[in-house]
Write a protein that binds this DNA or RNA. Structure first.
Lengths: 334, 334
DNA sequence: CTGTGCCGTCGAAGCGCTTCGACGAGCCTA
DNA sequence: TAGGCTCGTCGAAGCGCTTCGACGGCACAG
């Protein structure tokens, strides 16, 4: 293994000089710099991560806590994770993948071992038990999601309330008066995951303002569950002419079922979704949808947390404005 | 930050004694051990990861390289990643998430910086350019997938050839003589991703043996693409009575399209898939399928790599035997 | 009662890097 | 021409941990 000392010797300078060439924290003459850089290349030197972390108390690692549950909104999670990893690299950081089990204990462990310079948390619950710890330690952290009390942490998320409102507006504008909301699995609501409740609040409020009747039903992602939910909705509110789906896995089954009932989309029923654009665009009927900007969330979270590490940036809550893309699944009320 | 020295002082012993309590590498009297452990708890001590890595040249980190492309077999990837992370924790390791871009350079970087004790690679291509490096460095590595030349590395994967064979057997046993294979996106074959080609080989070989006619068509995961592919297949081989789908995203569209054509599954057409069990079970018609055992792959990869780190275990290729679960989507040829 | 060996503990030497203070050389200013 | 700068470089002191060799104290055998 090539060390700093090897490079120094090879270049005929002292170790500290090599270090300063690498970090740029002191000025180095052009000739020395070049000589050192050549040696680095020739020897194939890479700084030892452990030694560097020890000496500088900076690991250049970001910890990313993802939910353990593999049954929920998986594509979004994956997209965020990948976006986090790529953005982090662009800033010189690597990403540690932590699964959510043992939330607070994991936070403490990472904290105590100084393994990561900062944490990014996904799947945030309204009263998340990792938050008190995070605040206590004071290490930079960013949540992707919005807890009930976002003080002294940073948060990034889609403005789900606005997204909900946008859906209702769009449908109301097309004349719909009875809208059914197919939601995430019941477990998501039971855990008080923020985004689901905020969407609902946004839907309801604008619904009230616009005089639209809403029926909300949580729903598992399987075909059978969607079928059951649809049947219930149609029984309880036969006049329903539009659906808002917030459940990646439910969109395709819903479209299939409607087709089976010979109810044409969008002529007889309108369907819109809150999901990643890719999912919406690839559905059997390209869906009018509010996009969940997974990549941007990941990128923003990293940039925010890096800023904090570097002493710039402060605690703030950023809610990205929702964007509605009209495709082929919504039309005027029949 | 609490250090080893703090614990030692608090417990009234030397630093090395605390270290030995932690590592168990020398015998310690019960009384001393207890005293030290109490101090550790009381002070909330966590060993500094950097210092530990530096002193022991062991980081207790596993690097996991996942593909950058978010458009392919995402659920399997995610499931594997999570399984890797959880299993790794159970063995005392954390997981570094590396996206596949710059493959060889990344391998060299991790290698040189001693950031990880071992690497796990996913999305392995037949002639993967990361392999030569991996062999050269001699650091423990496990591939999830199977390259053309698996010498001097370890590999775990589903036996996709056997999986393909199993599908053909099952369908041939039901009397089908014309089978269409809906494959992954063309790009997957162009990159010579091992699993796709091996499946095809298995399908073809057993097809030949059993006198079954196979028609293979790569296919994007969107509804429109599946529709186009299905149309082509039905035009080219009107007698097709069974489908094998190896493309997570294509199963649901295919079922929906067949339903639309009023071709009942399994009465008129049989459909089977090679995909995670969860996907198969949740489809609109529960699918007879060969499961991709994502969790096991992840778990096995970690156990293998940990064994190598500890000096046990050697280079080997393990192909998990495919398991066929008969559900409701396959039946006798009409 | 002395010699031998083991058990439990300690001190010290690094691991490879960052960073602080020091210092010589060259330059400008007075 | 002496004094004071700045610039570029060096040496040394850690960062917090692991690990090796050493060393007392005790139990046992002779």
């Amino acid at each position: 293994m090539v060390t700093l000392a090897d490079v120094a010797q090879h270049a005929g300078v002292s170790a500290s000089t090599v270090s300063y060439v690498l970090s740029g924290k002191r000025s180095i003459s052009a000739s020395t710099r070049e000589r050192v850089e050549r040696s680095i290349d020739q020897l194939g030197y890479h700084p030892n991560a452990g030694a560097r972390a020890l000496a500088s108390s900076k690991s250049n690692i970001l910890a990313l806590m993802v939910p353990l549950r593999t049954d929920m909104y998986v594509p979004v999670m994956m997209e965020i994770a990948i976006s986090v990893a790529t953005t982090a690299r662009a800033h010189g950081y690597d990403v540690l993948l932590l699964t959510g089990e043992e939330g607070p204990a994991t936070v403490r462990r990472i904290e105590g071992s100084a393994l990561a310079d900062a944490m990014i948390l996904m799947d945030v619950e309204l009263h998340d038990d990792r938050l008190p710890l995070l605040r206590e330690t004071g290490r930079p952290a960013v949540l992707i999601g919005l807890p009930a009390d976002p003080s002294r942490v940073s948060c990034v998320d889609l403005d789900f309330a606005a997204a909900g409102a946008l859906c209702v507006e769009h449908l109301a504008g097309l004349g719909h008066r009875d809208i059914a909301v197919i939601g995430e699995a019941p477990a998501v609501y039971e855990r008080h995951t923020g985004f689901a409740e905020r969407t609902l609040a946004g839907l309801r409020e604008r619904g009230r303002e616009l005089g639209v009747r809403l029926l909300h039903r949580p729903c598992e992602g399987s075909y059978a569950a969607v079928a059951a939910t649809l049947a219930r909705v149609q029984e309880e509110r036969p006049g329903t002419t539009a659906f808002v789906v917030q459940n990646e896995a439910a969109t395709d089954p819903l479209l299939a079922l409607l087709r089976q009932q010979r109810r044409a989309v969008p002529e007889d029923v309108s369907v819109m979704a809150i999901c990643p654009d890719q999912v919406a665009a690839h559905a059997s009927v390209p869906l009018t949808a509010v996009a969940v900007p997974a990549q941007e969330l990941g990128r923003y979270a990293v940039e925010q947390v890096v800023a904090k590490i570097e002493g710039r940036g402060s605690d703030e809550v950023v809610l990205l404005a929702p964007e509605l893309t009209v495709r082929e699944s919504t039309g005027p009320r029949p």
